[in-house]
Nucleic acid binder design. Structure first.
Length: 426
RNA sequence: GUGGGUGUGGCGAAGUGGUUAACGCACCGGAUUGUGGCUCCGGCACUCGUGGGUUCAAGUCCCAUCAUCCACCCCA
């Protein structure tokens, strides 16, 4: 039997890699402009990092991790997200001793053992950024601004930013008791998941997708109703700063993210038309996380976006990615001697930085022309016995459909003169 | 983890029990013995996802299994 790729994985093949390159280029560019430096952390980490960082009550840790014992009996996990690793690296490399804040971004594969569906894979890719060491609400706005500007640049439209504040540990206590008090009598009407959440993580009942639970929680005290004074002020400043940089957002007091580490600001970006998995970006503030994994008390905020989902929206909105592969040259050689000579010319052109091809299948001239046409080649250099004898070569311009015979030594000069886009020549 | 749909050549897609499994696209070659994009002609299938079973006979029916798609849950 043919061996297939594992469930939920993909081969990113030449036909689509251009779109990845486009996004990767835009990501590096905007991060550099906003003052973020790339960090590359291991693809696998000690399992405990995610248990403590992401949280024991989350679905990610409970049922979605790729965990195994290595030959030294260490429990290892393929990273399901990037934030915990970045925080670990911040502590391990003593970034807290550098000027703060430390602004980092990452781009790479993540792994979650889930059932696949549209926009959901087991190996998927995230671009994320984190700011560590600053609690100023302006930082929250800067991070969202980066996201907003990135989507604008790559040409996505009609996205919605959902914003909320889930409070700090102080308001969380109040939130929890008010919520439990309110729901106490109707606990039995909640879905089974929510009955479970009632003790473990009552806040998550707020964004349960179950219709019955939603009906029961129409008037519940939300995270915004129970914010402490400091959190309230922080949230107000974040909103002011967002308005100052022209970002449209929608407050959603029932949005609670599924990772335990979030505090205060939480946000998601939603897109339409790509199936049920419409969140293309999620993030928030996690002021307790660095300390949780053993570092000094350090505020932090960040986001992650799914590359595959962005690509899905780009496809859906038919955003054109420009193609910079132009001005190719193909050498059409006829006969053994011409092939040998043609190969020499090919290598010389390549040394001059010209994007050049040659037939490698022993095709006849007609087929080589066809091949050139399909490869989008602009110039075909024809070399046969006749040309060999005269030390000449025919240059055919495929777009104009005309051709002329020139001397072998004049090839480079001819191409230089005619190729509009001279970046392909040294 | 739960529920539904699908699985025929590189891709798309007929065929629902009975001779050598249509067709379209792509690919290769020819018509034009040294010249592309159009046209015409021709070529290109060891396993109809895999493994069992029913039957004189299965791509067509049954079971299992795998993959894939969609949805729930959750998330990027």
């Amino acid at each position: 039997m043919v061996i297939q790729r594992p469930k939920g994985t993909q081969d990113i093949i030449p036909g689509t890699i251009k779109r990845w390159h486009f996004l990767e280029t835009q990501i590096r560019k905007i991060c550099s402009e906003f003052g973020y430096q790339e960090i590359r952390t291991p693809i696998f980490e000690a399992t405990e990092l995610f248990q403590r960082g992401v949280g024991e009550t989350t679905d990610i840790v409970n049922k979605e991790m790729y965990t195994f014992l290595d030959k030294g009996q260490r429990s290892i996990t393929l990273r399901p997200e990037g934030t915990a690793s970045v925080c670990r690296a911040y502590v391990e490399n003593k970034f807290y001793a550098q000027p703060q804040p430390v602004k980092l971004y990452y781009l790479g594969p993540m792994f979650r053992y889930e059932n696949t569906q549209a926009g959901r894979y087991r190996q998927f890719h995230q671009f994320g950024a984190e700011v560590l060491g600053a609690q100023d609400p302006l930082v929250d706005a800067e991070v969202i601004h980066l996201i907003w500007e990135f989507y604008r640049r790559i040409g996505l439209k009609g996205l919605e930013v959902h914003l909320n504040s889930v409070g700090c540990p102080v308001c969380r206590t109040e939130q929890r008791s008010q919520l439990q008090y309110y729901l106490q009598e109707r606990k039995s009407d909640l879905c089974l998941d929510c009955q479970d959440r009632f003790e473990k993580n009552p806040m998550r009942i707020l964004d349960c997708k179950n219709k019955g639970c939603q009906a029961l929680t129409v008037d519940v005290p939300t995270t915004l109703d129970t914010l402490c004074e400091e959190c309230k002020e922080h949230f107000a400043k974040v909103q002011q700063a967002l308005r100052d940089c022209g970002i449209e957002y929608r407050i959603n007091p029932k949005m609670v993210r599924g990772l335990d580490y979030y505090q205060r600001t939480a946000f998601e970006v939603m897109a339409e038309g790509i199936g049920a998995q419409s969140a293309i970006c999620g993030g928030g503030r996690y002021d307790g996380l660095v300390e949780e994994i053993g570092g000094p008390s350090t505020p932090g905020i960040g986001f992650a976006m799914g590359i595959e989902r962005i690509l899905a929206v780009l496809d859906k909105q038919k955003v054109a990615i420009d193609n910079d592969q132009e001005n190719k040259v193909l050498i059409a050689a006829l006969g053994a001697q011409a092939r040998q000579e043609g190969f020499k010319i090919l290598s010389e052109l390549r040394q001059d930085g010209v994007s050049a091809l040659m037939d490698l299948m022993g095709r006849g001239l007609k087929s080589q022309m066809k091949y050139a046409d399909r490869e989008g080649v602009r110039y075909v250099l024809i070399l046969g016995d006749e040309e060999l004898a005269k030390d000449a070569i025919i240059v055919r311009d495929m777009r104009l459909g005309d051709q002329s015979e020139i001397s072998r030594g004049a090839i480079k000069k001819y191409l230089l003169k005619n190729m509009k886009n001279s970046k392909y020549l040294l």
